[in-house]
Amino acid sequence: MDCLRAEAYVLDQLRQHLSPTLFYHGLHHTLDVVEQALALAAAEGITDTDVITLLRTAALYHDSGFLTTYQGHEAAGCALVRQVLPDFGYTTPQIELIEELIMATRMPQSPGSRQLARILCDADLDYLGRPDFWPISQTLFEELTVRGLMPNEMAWLQLQVEFLSTHRYWTPSATIRREAQKQARLAEVQKRLTR
């Protein structure tokens, strides 16, 4: 598999064709998810280079469906994977695994017992337990607002409380790294909501 060409292809597509109103789901988010997925894989003890390559490819393509649609972007990303990855030497089983990883990130997340799916899900929502939670969550609020999917800030804060309260990290490494800070962010959101 020629992962470098597969990577160059999707990064070029995302740079050229993503909507400028994807304030959250832009190229910066994809690159962050790749970085966090690789860090989590290392923390979880994954050393097989082919496995890491497949995880990296899944992370790079996980939101590529936004090139064509907002709702159901995971399935659209899987269609893109099926279309282009054979040209880069990916086998059918490798492509099916990448599709499975992408679909695991659909909300509500459902990675099952597959470690790579759990890693990708945790990487996708890593920011929930980070110091940059507030500016990142603001970009998601703006992205949803511009699409008419979020009526106001009060509704957004209520959604945040519900989401943070029910969200879980799937890997031990993400739980150790991010859970305590995520709980702190939840408390901050609840405090803003009562103001």
Rank of each mutant, 00 (worst) to 15 (best):
M1N: 14
D2C: 07
E7F: 08
Y9H: 15
V10I: 15
H17M: 12
S19Y: 07
P20V: 13
F23E: 13
F23A: 10
H25G: 09
H28G: 10
D32T: 11
D32F: 06
V34L: 14
E35L: 11
A37R: 01
L40E: 02
A41L: 11
A42H: 12
I46C: 06
T47V: 10
T47L: 09
I52H: 09
I52D: 03
T53Y: 04
L54W: 01
R56T: 11
R56F: 08
A58H: 00
A58C: 02
A58Y: 00
H62K: 01
D63S: 08
G65M: 03
F66M: 13
F66L: 14
T68L: 09
T69K: 13
A79E: 15
V84S: 04
V84F: 13
P86S: 07
G89N: 10
P93H: 12
I95E: 04
I95S: 02
E99C: 15
M103K: 09
M103F: 05
Q109K: 04
S113A: 09
R114W: 00
L116G: 00
R118H: 00
L120K: 01
Y127T: 10
Y127A: 04
R130Q: 13
P131G: 11
F133A: 07
P135N: 08
I136G: 06
I136W: 05
I136Q: 09
I136N: 03
S137N: 11
T139G: 03
T145P: 01
M150K: 07
M150T: 04
L159I: 02
Q160F: 04
E162I: 11
S165H: 07
Y169G: 01
Y169R: 02
W170L: 00
T171S: 01
A174M: 01
Q181M: 11
K182P: 04
Q190N: 05
K191T: 14
